[in-house]
Design a protein around this nucleic acid. Sequence first.
DNA 1: CTCATTTAGTTGCAGATGCAACTAAATAAA
DNA 2: TTTATTTAGTTGCATCTGCAACTAAATGAG
Lengths: 149, 149
Amino acid sequence: MSRKPSRQTRQAWIDLHRAHRLLLERAESALKQAGLPPLDWYDVLLELRRDGGSGLRQYQLGERVLLSKHNLSRLIDRLEQNDLVRREACAEDGRGNLIRITGAGERTLERMWPVYGDAIESTFGARLTRGEAVELSRVLAKVLDQDGG
Amino acid sequence: MSRKPSRQTRQAWIDLHRAHRLLLERAESALKQAGLPPLDWYDVLLELRRDGGSGLRQYQLGERVLLSKHNLSRLIDRLEQNDLVRREACAEDGRGNLIRITGAGERTLERMWPVYGDAIESTFGARLTRGEAVELSRVLAKVLDQDGG
DNA sequence: CTCATTTAGTTGCAGATGCAACTAAATAAA
DNA sequence: TTTATTTAGTTGCATCTGCAACTAAATGAG
């Protein structure tokens, strides 16, 4: 199947990837400038907190954060080294870990959000109308609905 | 300035980055499966061919491809090692070099496009209407219009 | 129960990235 | 002309990513 992409499709494709790169660069550099950890850390910590204190299995975390398991494994190493996260043995499954966020982890999250949120708003949110943001999500959802969705 | 991002903004932000990641993964894996080089190579080769045979300075290439100069320098190393590109001394500027695509480079480009184009169309283009693609570009342009242009 | 298969997670290695320091040529200032 | 500053590009180092190979526990078949 699958004919050749139209000119409009190609343009949108390029714009999508350029926007991603630009926005990410800005957000990362804002965090770095504030002496804060990179975005991946934020994503993981956020998912952990969102889950309450009950802890998440590593593979669950991986699904939510879209990180492959080897990378996640090492990211958690780094987080653990910085005391933002704790690995605990899992009762039901002897192979697995339960990852739990620490107090320091929650505080890090809280120090990161203002900087991250500002970056999102100034580079992205403030440039779109409410309706455009919604429309963007709607259109992207059509793309995201392919098994990774 | 810069208030906190709205819920809609946050959602669109997440969707944008997820879409980027999903699409890129698909395209890269399609290329890899076909035994072809990664996307970065395509981008560079494409810009070089687009320019005709006249050759591009490294910094010009960097601007178009959105790659930092050190990374570009090493990417060109790899391309040169595979004979897809040639570095030539630059007449007007003794520090610089002129990057020129080789015949093998052009052939690589031609072998990559069917695979890449198919990936774009099947994971992206086919899921949007023509109008949605245009709307996507229009909205993203508002984001891209910040000095990174 | 025993053995094969699947699943969770880790590790080694190669390739890629960001950062800072570097070389060398070009430009501007004295 | 001499010296200082900027610009083009490269390199070393630390970090990060992907892939494949690995360990170990869980599940399923005989």
